[in-house]
Design a protein around this nucleic acid. Structure first.
Lengths: 195, 195
DNA sequence: CACTAATGCTTCGTGTGCTAAGTGTTTTCA
DNA sequence: TGAAAACACTTAGCACACGAAGCATTAGTG
């Protein structure tokens, strides 16, 4: 149930782009369908960005940034985590998390402890101050979004899940095909769709 | 049809968080429903992040960053835009776009031109080099995502639109209520920067 | 056992991204 | 009309975010 706890660590500026070359999808669409698709995209975008904004707002009240709040809540729930574990949870690079932890350590919210079993590993845990802060920020992750989904009828929920999963699968296939084909020029980076 | 052209200019790290305090939604949910909701969230997150990743990848091949590619394609389609118009299109602050344009101008991809009608305004347009680059990167925005949605049956598309819109509306209401209540600086937190 | 590869983390450089504050230009309106 | 407000943009300071390179430490191999 903590699976989706720490997910929206957004990156720097990007936006949806697909390549026609890559996709080879050129079937013409009616304007009506196009409008529907636009509306779907807008809704998804709205939900994503709005949720991010809310997170930030909640964090700000506790004098934290978005990622810092994420870390605080993760450590509160899971106790101690290695830096790499933390990176995976918040879907960021190790180097990014190093910076976040640096700043949080500076503020006295977390502390690092070298592992005894494997001296490469650093365990990160909340300090008393950090734990106190975690208590004060009574936040459950993604709650607004989750509540909105709960508001649907069971049928709608199932339907939504089914359709979104279908889209995700379709995108995964497209990505797989695309990267496969484009690993020849200046060494294209590719990534597995981590289901 | 360019409405959703330049949308995913992500911000820095945040993630979905809602506050129970704020929402006041505490009805217990069955584990099954919780799992469904998680799956829905995962799908949305996947679609968002994957699309961003794809954009970045496409941009990298043209020696551009995500936002820069967005700007190039926007200017290619729309000709000249003021900085503020550009900011709105890519959903970023003016100050952010100033930086992006600075770097693109440095690379000789775009140029600034003070407006004659209103001397506060700066028009940005592609240089020959920028236009050439735009041609080389044959990209239609959000195409992978769009193609995946087109792959649905008409019924599914309508249903998806309906449900997502419903969720978005619900979130909007929740946000409105929440901000209404929290506009006052609820200074109840331990805010000692200790720096 | 030595040697290489892999792993965990940090450092560095660049590019967003935001807010707040600053500089000019128009608009508004008393 | 003339000062205040609004607007367009830039600057400055901070916090991500990523990739690449570097430093230890551990694992894997001959």
């Amino acid at each position: 149930m903590l699976r989706v706890l720490s997910v929206f660590t957004g990156s720097e500026g990007d936006f949806f782009v697909g390549s026609r070359e890559v996709m080879r999808v050129v079937n013409p669409i009616s304007p009506a369908v196009k409008a529907e698709i636009d509306q779907i995209l807008e809704a998804i975008i709205y939900l994503y960005t709005e949720s991010r904004r809310i997170t930030k707002e909640v964090a700000r009240r506790a004098n934290l940034t978005g990622p810092q709040l994420t870390v605080v809540k993760l450590l509160e729930h899971l106790g101690s985590l290695s830096l790499t574990e933390l990176s995976e949870k918040i879907r960021s690079q190790n180097s990014t998390v190093t910076g976040i932890i640096d700043r949080m350590e500076r503020e006295g919210l977390v502390s690092r402890a070298r592992s005894q079993e494997d001296r490469r590993v650093v365990h990160i845990h909340l300090t008393d101050k950090g734990a106190q802060l975690a208590l004060e920020v009574a936040v459950e992750p993604m709650e607004i979004f989750r509540a909105a989904i709960e508001d649907l009828t069971p049928t709608e929920t199932k339907e939504l899940m089914k359709i979104l999963t279908k889209i995700a699968k379709r995108v995964q296939r497209a990505v797989a095909t695309a990267t496969e084909r484009s690993v020849k020029p200046t060494d294209s980076k590719s990534k597995e769709p981590t289901s």
